[in-house]
Amino acid sequence: MPELRTIAEGLRFPEGPVALADGSVLVVEIRRGTLSRVDPDGAISVVADCGGGPNGAAIGPDGAVYVCNNGGFRWHDRDGLSVPGGQPDDYSGGRLQRVTLDGEVTDVCTEVDGRPLRGPNDLVFDADGGCYFTDFGKTRAREMDLGGLYYALPDGSRVEELVFPLHQPNGVGLSPDGDRVHVAETGSGRVWSWEVLGPGRVRRGAELLHGFSGARMLDSLAVDSAGNVCVATLNTGEISVLSPDGELVEQVPVPVPDPLVTNICFGGPDLRTAYITSSGRGVLYETEWPRPGLAPHFTA
């Protein structure tokens, strides 16, 4: 079992980790509304104030950071955990944002075909420089949105809906050769997979990669170099590793129990360092992973 080491504590619901070439790690702090940098010594600094609820993040082809902003949550403090809730009174609307490392924030898109984005959650760039992203939707007192899978170019000139509806789509990732896109649904505990026919084109009809039993719910994910899908698993507070054919092969819990383990990314010179966000407790961990991660198409 990999040994996890604490890099930083006191983060305000960290998510969307991105490993940088200098050894630092970008994270969003959803409750703080920022894109932040964690240095190797654990020092935390704010890169940009994104407002709303910055969620997934990824480096684009221009070296900027692209952020899925869910518009914000209601927040609750329970038993030492920071817990997100439904749509807040100051909800700012969903959007895909471009953030430079010197702090400039601009919107790429806020709607698709005239329909507003509700709660963009996670994204991944393909080799052609476009990104697949999920819209989780928002939850209100007696209703909730349906979500979907989308594709966008970084300049906003193309934004398309690929799959709708999905139930709380969260993490999204591509297979090593880019021929499949995987999406984790939170509430259903299912990971779905679509064949990619071209940039931003998927074959109709999803294949179920894996359905989790019990009370396991899913958050974001990353794919390793062998094509395994490493998906953050809520309630049980661990990273679950699925083989390319959907077999559950490994589960890696965090050392201090947290039902809100939300994300994983890979970094280091050989991509063997995994960074894991324990969001309820505000902790960023690192560990040596048994296999190299999948190299992102774009880095900074």
Results as ranks from 00 to 15, higher is better:
P88L: 08
T110G: 12
D41R: 14
G94P: 08
M144Q: 13
D77H: 14
D145V: 13
E29D: 02
I59H: 08
F164H: 11
G94E: 02
R95Q: 14
L81I: 05
D128Q: 12
F136Q: 14
D102P: 09
V108M: 05
V27P: 07
R115A: 11
L35K: 01
H76F: 11
R37K: 02
G119Y: 03
D155Y: 09
D89N: 06
S82G: 12
A43E: 13
L117V: 01
N55L: 12
R95S: 15
D126W: 02
G53E: 07
Y151F: 07
G85T: 02
L101F: 13
G53I: 06
P120E: 05
E104T: 15
G85N: 03
R78T: 08
Y150R: 05
A58Y: 11
L101P: 08
V25Q: 06
V47T: 11
V27I: 14
N121H: 01
D49H: 15
V108R: 06
D122S: 04
N70T: 07
P40D: 15
D79W: 04
S92K: 10
D22V: 14
E111C: 13
G156M: 05
D145I: 12
P116R: 07
G103C: 09
R32W: 09
L35N: 01
R158Q: 12
D39I: 00
V38C: 00
N121E: 01
P120K: 01
G33Q: 03
V112P: 09
G119T: 11
G23F: 10
V46S: 12
D39F: 05
A127V: 08
V124C: 10
V25Y: 05
P116W: 03
D77K: 13
T100M: 10
G71S: 08
L149H: 07
E160M: 05
D39P: 00
A48W: 12
D126G: 09
G129T: 04
G156Y: 04
R142N: 10
R31I: 11
A127I: 01
T139I: 14
M144E: 15
Y132I: 12
Y66C: 00
V38E: 00
G23V: 11
L35R: 03
C68R: 06
